[in-house]
C-alpha cells in the first residue's frame, strides 16, 4: 500500500510521521543483535513483496507481507517496514518521502498489533501457530487497508468511499497473505521452531525482548 505524494493533507502527514517516529523509537530500542539477521531478511522480503502483483479486474494489487514481520518481530517490524518503504520510495518511486510516515504507520502498526495479540498462539506451535500465521497475514493487510482508508477519509473523501475502494481491493491480498503466512510459519516450525517461541516476550526470563 503506497499512498502517493500530494494526496494527503499536511495534518494527516504530520500525524503519520509522528506515529511512525514513535514506532521507530520503540522498535529500535528492542532491536538486539540476535534479531538483526531476521529483521534484515524480513526487510528484504517486504522490499521485494511490492513487486508481486495480484491481477484484480482492470488493475492489480501487490503483496505486502507485513503480517509476518509483525508476528516474528513485534515492534521491530516498524524499523523493518520503514527501511523497506524508504528504499521503495527512493529506488522504485513507490509512494514518496513526504508520505513515508503515513505509509509506515499504515503498514507497520496493524502488523505490530497482530503480532502482539497473536504471539502466545504462535508460541504454542502446531495448529495454533498456523492459525496465528493466517490471522496475522490476513489481519495485517486488512488493518493496513483500513488505516489507509482512514488517512484518505481524513483528507478529502468519505470514509465509506475510501474504505470500499481500498479494503475491497485488498481482500484477495489478505487471503493470499494469510496462506503465505501459514506456509512460512509451518516451514519455520519445521526448521527453526526457536524463531516462533522467541517471538514470545522474554523480558521475564532476562533475555532480549523480541
Amino acid at each position: 500500500m503506497h499512498i502517493t505524494e500530494g494526496v494527503l493533507s499536511a495534518p494527516v502527514l504530520a500525524l503519520g510521521a509522528a506515529t511512525a517516529a514513535t514506532g521507530l523509537w520503540l522498535g529500535l530500542r528492542r532491536l538486539e543483535e540476535d534479531r538483526l539477521v531476521l529483521a534484515a531478511a524480513l526487510a528484504a522480503v517486504f522490499f521485494i513483496g511490492s513487486l508481486i502483483h495480484v491481477p484484480l479486474g482492470p488493475s492489480s494489487v501487490h503483496l505486502l507481507l507485513n503480517g509476518l514481520a509483525g508476528l516474528l518481530l513485534g515492534w521491530i517490524a516498524f524499523p523493518v517496514i520503514f527501511v523497506g518503504l524508504l528504499l521503495q520510495a527512493l529506488l522504485f518511486q513507490f509512494g514518496g518521502l513526504l508520505v513515508l510516515g503515513v505509509n509506515t504507520t499504515a503498514v507497520a502498526l496493524p502488523a505490530v498489533l497482530c503480532g502482539l495479540i497473536l504471539r502466545p498462539l504462535l508460541a504454542r506451535g502446531g495448529k495454533p501457530a498456523l492459525v496465528a500465521g493466517m490471522l496475522a497475514g490476513s489481519g495485517a493487510v486488512l488493518g493496513t487497508a483500513l488505516l489507509a482508508a482512514t488517512a484518505l477519509a481524513l483528507t478529502d473523501q468519505g470514509f465509506l468511499v475510501a474504505a470500499k475502494l481500498v479494503v475491497l481491493a485488498h481482500l484477495p491480498v489478505a487471503a493470499i497473505e494469510g496462506a503465505v503466512a501459514v506456509f512460512v510459519v509451518g516451514f519455520l516450525g519445521q526448521t527453526r521452531p526457536d524463531l516462533l517461541t522467541c517471538a514470545l516476550p522474554t523480558a521475564t526470563q532476562g533475555g532480549a525482548p523480541c
Binding site: 532491536l31 538486539e32 543483535e33 538483526l36 539477521v37 529483521a39 534484515a40 526487510a43 528484504a44 522490499f47 521485494i48 513487486l51 527501511v83 523497506g84 528504499l87 521503495q88 529506488l91 522504485f92
Partner: peptide, 26 residues
C-alpha cells in the same frame, strides 16, 4: 519500472544497514 539493478541495490542497502546495526549494537 524497477529493474534488477534497483532490486539488487535495495537488498544491498538492507545488508549494509544490518552490518551497520551489528557494529553499533556491539
Amino acid at each position: 519500472g524497477p529493474g534488477i539493478p534497483e532490486i539488487v541495490g535495495g537488498i544491498g542497502w538492507i545488508v549494509g544497514l544490518a552490518g551497520l546495526g551489528t557494529v553499533l549494537l556491539r
